Amino acid sequence: MFGKIHEVYSSISGEGISQGIPTVFIRFAGCSLRCGKTETRALWCDTAYALGPNQGEEKTLESVWNDLEKLDPHHGYQVLLTGGEPLEGKNRDLSTALAKQIYEHRMNVGRPYPASRVETNGSERITEDSFFIFTMDYKLPGSGMEDRMDQENFRILEKRHNSLDEIKFVVRDRIDFDRSIEVIREQKIQTNILYSPVHGEVDAKELVEWIKVDNPPKCRLSLQIHKVLWGNQKGV
């Protein structure tokens, strides 16, 4: 079993409800989406360096487990599977096997954060497995990728009823925000909701004002504190 891994490193979780938690990041390489890119507007992905599958090294479950143990020998950190896209192609099999092994080990020895958090782009089918926690993007019109979203994921999140799952809306403009409100109402979303502004295209303070007016259930502004601390660097 192999997956394409771009990097494995330790830091703190930079966004969402797990923000600030010491975390081992396992970044997969390869993602079929290209968010925001049009003839006149730029790609906004902040990990564009991991979008191509050839931007990663093929690794086995044993190899990634060894990387994890070197960084966190006592298994006390949250584990976050990100990308690229950890549920795409062969990466999905490795993500599943790794998360299951982490879960079983930590449950047996009584360590925190047994379930691995997965940051996924919304185009891949999530699961009901208890060894996963999901931060799932829903791509809004400004991304150009909304037609790639797997709508069944909303039903699965509802069945999971996991208080740690999140849906993330990355907002490019007012059209995006208004569409997010439509999606929340159409899908009757009860999961935690994150709002993040596209850097350089919408002011976070303006996004806050929109949120204050509509006040969707369980929503919060999510800014990337790792960029505040270290800037736009890799591996932090």
Rank of each mutant, 00 (worst) to 15 (best):
G3N: 09
I5E: 03
I5N: 03
V8M: 10
S10G: 12
S13Y: 00
S18K: 04
T23N: 04
S32Y: 08
T38K: 00
E39A: 15
R41M: 11
A42C: 13
C45F: 02
A50G: 07
G52I: 00
N54S: 14
G56K: 01
E57M: 13
K59V: 04
T60R: 01
E62A: 15
D67C: 11
L68E: 05
L71H: 04
G76P: 02
G76T: 08
T82V: 02
T82S: 14
E85H: 07
L87V: 05
E88N: 10
G89K: 06
G89S: 12
D93P: 03
A97S: 13
L98C: 11
L98A: 09
K100N: 11
K100Q: 14
K100R: 13
E104S: 12
M107P: 03
M107V: 03
P112A: 10
Y113R: 02
A115H: 05
R117I: 06
R117V: 11
V118W: 05
E119W: 10
E119F: 12
N121S: 15
N121D: 15
G122S: 10
S123M: 07
I126W: 01
I126G: 05
T127G: 06
T127C: 06
E128L: 09
E128Y: 00
D129E: 14
S130A: 14
F132Y: 09
F134P: 05
T135Y: 00
L140F: 00
S143R: 00
D147E: 14
R148D: 13
M149P: 10
Q151C: 09
N153W: 07
F154V: 06
L157H: 08
H161Q: 13
N162I: 07
L164S: 14
L164F: 13
V171E: 03
D176Y: 00
D178M: 15
S180V: 08
I184G: 08
Q187V: 07
K188T: 13
Q190P: 05
S196H: 09
P197D: 07
P197Q: 03
V198E: 00
G200Q: 07
V202Y: 02
V202A: 05
A204Q: 07
E206D: 08
L207M: 07
E209R: 11
I211H: 12
V213C: 04
D214P: 11
L223K: 10
Q224Y: 00
Q224C: 05
Q224E: 07
H226E: 11
V228N: 07
